[in-house]
């Protein structure tokens, strides 16, 4: 285990903290989910190598923490691969703005000489930890997306867990922290999948303090399109699996449509479209008018094309 971390010698050199700090800054500047998750793992590796070399952390603990962050990144990347590339993934302004904010932060840090000394921590390592925590805060403030907020929260936890292992090397505490990180990644992955289903639409609320966001319409995407190694479903005998559009998701009781979205539109020829009345009123009126002709009001034998014309779909009835 120790050999693994001694192999990461470039992190423990004098330029090691600089590399790790720049990785955190790059995560913000690039604002790409792949870069963020890879950056998170790189930072964890670097911090663990530094902690083993300079703080005397047990290599076993460092390895376990690295493994946990790796699992977290894997879990979130699986969800991200299922997600549509539009929506809140593209929020937080241009790269110029983010670089400018980073520069402003670095200048303020130097100018005001902001310090927070964590006991028993090497000064240069302490500076790195504060920089990582600051980058995490910046990422949180720029994002309202599950992936980037989750990444920022994990980035916040990486230096903190090192500090805690140094201050309190209690196995149960370290296990609790690791468990919380995994739980956090799981929760964020779940929210990321949910966000994917919403079609990345969100009402802009003027009293909300979130960073202003322009949500772009997300293009339809086949599930599995990101897995290039998989055979093309259209060229095999396997049935093509289309992504689940939010209008075709079976809506449970309690489910709702995305905010600001109107109910599913009826075909242009339907009565509701012409009269402007609510579809359910039109349907009820149609049932009433057809009831004397049919034995049961739910009888659809006289529906156009012999079908129910979508009138009895469960999502409308809910």
């Amino acid at each position: 285990m120790e050999q693994f971390f001694t192999g990461l010698r470039f992190f423990t050199s004098n330029s090691g903290p600089l590399i790790i700090g720049l990785t955190a800054a790059l995560m913000i500047a690039l604002w790409d989910w792949r870069a963020s998750l890879v950056g998170l793992v790189v930072i964890q590796l670097g911090v663990a190598a530094l902690a083993v070399a300079r703080q005397g952390m047990q290599p076993q603990w460092a390895f376990i923490q690295t493994l946990i962050i790796g699992l977290c990144a894997l879990s979130m990347s699986i969800s991200a691969m299922q997600s549509k590339p539009g929506g809140s993934f593209r929020q937080s302004g241009t790269w110029v703005l983010r670089v400018f904010v980073l520069l402003l932060l670095a200048v303020c840090w130097r100018l005001f000489d902001l310090r927070f000394e964590i006991p028993l921590i090497d000064p240069s390592f302490n500076t790195l930890m504060i920089w990582l925590a600051t980058c995490a805060l910046l990422m949180m403030s720029l994002s309202d997306n599950s992936l980037f907020t989750g990444t920022a929260l994990l980035l916040w936890m990486i230096p903190m867990q090192v500090a805690i292992i140094v201050l309190w090397p209690i196995p149960s505490l370290i296990i609790i922290l690791g468990g919380l990180e995994l739980l956090l990644a799981l929760g964020c992955s779940y929210l990321l999948l949910i966000e994917n289903f919403t079609g990345a639409q969100k009402a802009l609320v003027m009293t909300d303090i979130t960073f202003p966001t322009i949500y772009l319409p997300a293009p339809a995407k086949q599930i599995g399109a990101s897995f290039r190694s998989l055979p093309d479903p259209t060229k095999t005998n396997l049935p093509a699996v289309k992504s689940i559009d939010h209008q075709t998701v079976p809506i449970e009781r309690g489910n709702r449509r995305p905010l600001g979205e109107l109910p599913p539109r009826r075909p242009a020829s339907s009565a509701g479209e012409r009269t402007g009345e609510h579809p359910i009123i039109v349907r009820l009126a149609k049932r009433r008018s057809s009831a004397p002709r049919n034995e049961s009001p739910t009888d659809t034998r006289d529906a156009p094309n012999g079908s129910t014309n979508g009138d009895e779909t469960p999502d409308e009835l809910t």
């Binding site: 309202d144 964020c188 949910i194 979130t210 809506i251 489910n255 709702r256 995305p258």
Partner: peptide, 13 residues
Amino acid sequence: GRLIHPAGPLRTL
């Protein structure tokens, strides 16, 4: 399980 933007639950974290 609601298909809405998860801003609220996310921010509670």
